[in-house]
């Protein structure tokens, strides 16, 4: 049996929660995302949107919402990429983009994360990576990870999240 809890490639991401808050959803990460959290995020600055909070604080807010089961505003915080049948999801904040999939309802497997500016066209230049490329990276990784089938779930937002 290969589940996110017993596959060595994945790391469960936890966050300190306040009293009265409990782990209601699971967030698992591929190694590249763990490195992003450890090495890139601490020094990351807000991008063109000039957000009030640092990217690290934004990630804390995002993880707290996900892990503690708080409402995730569809499209603003969590949305599926087209075509939706491929089951690739994006978590986002003002400065961050996290790509992955739902292995089971409320179980998110995060493949990688990047800064929002890298996914936007700026000064007439194309983004460093397109959403289509990001989606394909997630699918490529998912197909090779070896989790128990089905590889991912799709369905109504409220049932999945």
């Amino acid at each position: 049996m290969a589940t996110p809890d017993n596959i060595s490639t994945l790391t469960r991401i936890r966050i300190p929660l306040k009293r009265g808050e409990f782990d209601e959803r699971e967030f698992h990460a591929m190694p590249s995302l763990v490195r992003f959290l450890e090495e890139i995020l601490p020094g990351a600055k807000t991008g063109v949107v000039e957000a009030a909070e640092t990217p690290a604080a934004q990630m804390d807010t995002l993880l707290r919402k996900w892990n503690s089961g708080k409402p995730m505003a569809y499209s603003r915080a969590f949305s599926n990429l087209k075509p939706t049948a491929r089951g690739v999801w994006e978590m986002k904040t003002a400065d961050l983009r996290v790509f992955g999939w739902l292995w089971r309802p409320k179980v998110f497997i995060a493949t990688f994360a990047g800064l929002a500016d890298d996914y936007k066209s700026q000064d007439g230049n194309p983004p460093k990576e397109s959403y289509a490329e990001a989606r394909d990276r997630v699918v490529w990784t998912r197909d090779r990870l070896g989790l128990d089938p089905p590889n991912f779930v799709t369905g109504a937002y409220n049932a999945l999240v």
Binding site: T11, I15, E38, D60
Partner: peptide
């Protein structure tokens, strides 16, 4: 099960979560 505790520090957390 490997796990990673993402922690921005108590002071920062208190402010940004509020």
């Amino acid at each position: 099960m490997p796990s990673f505790n993402f922690d921005i520090g108590e002071k920062e957390r208190a402010g940004s979560r509020f």
